[in-house]
Amino acid sequence: MSQMESRLLGCFEAVFPDVAREDIPTAAIASMPEWDSLATVTLMSLIEEEFAIAISTDDLELFISFLVIKDLIGEKLGLA
């Protein structure tokens, strides 16, 4: 697991404390009832704080799973 993935995992853990760490890489909005709009906004703010990046409204539509968000951050950090 890359350092970026590990930091993203920490953000997910903070927002979804009841989800096991090993399940987070497969986390997706469709299968998690606790992933509501408030969780999305909190996750967004945590990611902005953790990676010092800005998430736009268009980006927010991609907040549907750990993997998609990981790719989005990779792009913004120039890692993709």
Partner: peptide, 12 residues
């Protein structure tokens, strides 16, 4: 206080 720390503390 960072939001990450606050979320953790508030979730205790």
């Amino acid at each position: 206080m960072k939001l990450a720390e606050a979320v953790k503390l508030a979730g205790t």
